[in-house]
Amino acid sequence: MRTASILLGILGLLGLFAGFLPLLGWVNWFATLPPALLGLLLGVLARDRGATTFNAVVIGLAALRLLLGGGFF
C-alpha cells in the first residue's frame, strides 16, 4: 500500500504542475485532488508517515492554488 500511495502522490504532483499554469487551475479538481486524497488514505492505512506527508503537501499546494485562483482559474 505504501508504494501505491507514493505513486498516487506522484500522479497528483504531475497534475499539480499542470494546474499551476494560468487558466488551468481547474485541472486540480480532476487530476490532482482525487489521486492525492486516495494516496493520503492509503498512506494512513499503511501507517507510512512519509507517504502521508507527501500526499498532504500535494493536497495543501493544490488547495492553495485553488484558493488563490478563486476555485476555478
Rank of each mutant, 00 (worst) to 15 (best):
L21N: 14
L8C: 02
L37Q: 12
W29K: 13
F30M: 13
F20N: 10
L24T: 12
R49F: 04
V58T: 01
W29P: 11
L41Y: 14
A51D: 08
A36K: 01
A4S: 03
R2G: 06
L23Y: 11
T53K: 10
W29G: 11
L45T: 10
P35R: 13
G12W: 14
V57W: 07
A4R: 08
L7G: 02
A4C: 02
F73E: 04
P22N: 01
L23P: 00
L13M: 14
L45F: 15
L67P: 10
G71I: 11
G69K: 07
L8T: 02
T32W: 11
L61S: 01
L8D: 05
N55F: 04
W26H: 12
R47L: 15
F73I: 03
T3M: 03
F20T: 06
L67G: 13
L37M: 15
F73A: 06
L14D: 04
A56H: 03
A62T: 11
N55Q: 03
L21P: 05
G43D: 04
F20R: 05
T3R: 07
G69L: 06
L11T: 15
G39D: 03
G9Q: 05
L68T: 07
A62Q: 13
V57N: 05
R49Q: 07
G50I: 09
L7N: 06
T52Y: 11
G9D: 02
F17D: 12
L42P: 09
T32E: 02
D48M: 09
V44Y: 10
L24N: 05
P35T: 06
G25V: 07
N28L: 14
L16T: 09
G19E: 14
M1Y: 12
V58W: 05
A18R: 12
G19P: 07
I10P: 04
V58M: 02
L21S: 07
L16Q: 06
G39T: 08
L23G: 04
L68S: 12
L64A: 13
G12N: 14
L33N: 01
G60Q: 02
V58I: 15
F30S: 06
V58F: 03
